[in-house]
Design a protein around this nucleic acid. Sequence first.
DNA 1: GGAAAATTTGCGAATGACTTGCAAATTTGT
DNA 2: ACAAATTTGCAAGTCATTCGCAAATTTTCC
Lengths: 127, 127
Amino acid sequence: MTKARKAILEALKASVQPVTAMMLAKEPSLSYDQATVYRNLHYLEELGMAQSFILHCSEHGTERYYSYRGADSGIHHHWFHCEKCHRFIDLGSCGYDEQMHAWEKKWDFTITDHTFFLTGICSACKA
Amino acid sequence: MTKARKAILEALKASVQPVTAMMLAKEPSLSYDQATVYRNLHYLEELGMAQSFILHCSEHGTERYYSYRGADSGIHHHWFHCEKCHRFIDLGSCGYDEQMHAWEKKWDFTITDHTFFLTGICSACKA
DNA sequence: GGAAAATTTGCGAATGACTTGCAAATTTGT
DNA sequence: ACAAATTTGCAAGTCATTCGCAAATTTTCC
C-alpha cells in the first residue's frame, strides 16, 4: 500500500463527517494531487474500506461523499444531511434487509446496492 | 404554460421510465434547446409535477432522472435500477413514513426530503 | 540488496452534465 | 392588440471528475 493510499485511508478513518475528494485534495496535511485522491478513493471503495454516496445540495452542488468502512465489520451507514449547516448525522445501518429481501422476491431481481439518505434541517439549525 | 413546458410535461407523463434532461432534449419530437429542457424540468419539479433523483451507473455516468408526479396525488416513487439493461422498475412509495418519524423524534431534526433507490440485476438480465 | 517489472503519481488537458448571460421570441394581463 | 413579464435559443462558462503520459514509487524475484 502506497503512502498516498495509506494517508487517504487514515484521513477517512479520522473524519467524523463524510468528505469529498476535493476536501481531501485541499487538505494541506495530505497534499496529493486531486487525480490521486480520486483514484485512491475509488480503489478504497472497491476494496470495501470506504463507502460513498452522491448528494446534491443547493449550496455545494453535486458531489460524492466518502466515509470510512471497516474492512470486515462492513456496516453500511446512512446519513441525514442538514441543508443549513451542511453537517451529517450518522443514522447507522438502515435495517431494511428484510424489506429488500421482500422486494427481491416480489420482483425477482438481485439487489447489489441501495442508496438511502435524508435531508432536512438539524436540531441546532431549527433553533 | 408555454408550448415547451407543456410538451415536456406530456413527455414525462407518457414515459414509463424515468428520463434525463438530455434524453428529452435529444427526442426529435420535442426539439427544444437543452437549456430550455433543464429549466423546465426544474420548474416542473418545483411545482410538484415532477420528481427526480441522481443516479450514477458505470455505463451512463452521473445523471439526474425525472419522472412524472400527479400534481395532487403526489406519490413519491422509488425505483430499482438494473445495471445491465439500464431499465427501472417502479417500486411505488417506500412506506417508511413511520421510520422517518421515529428518526425525526430521536434526533430532533426535520426531514424535508429522502432519497432511496436500489440497483442490481433485473429478472430478465439474470436469465 | 538491487535491478527489472508493475503500479502509482503528478501534471495538464479533456470530458460531460448542467448553468448562465443576453437578445430575440413568446405569453400574459388588461 | 399592446405593453410588460416571462421564456427561449444560442453560445460560452462552470465544475466535479477523468484521462494520457512520462516520471517516481513500490513490488517482485534472484
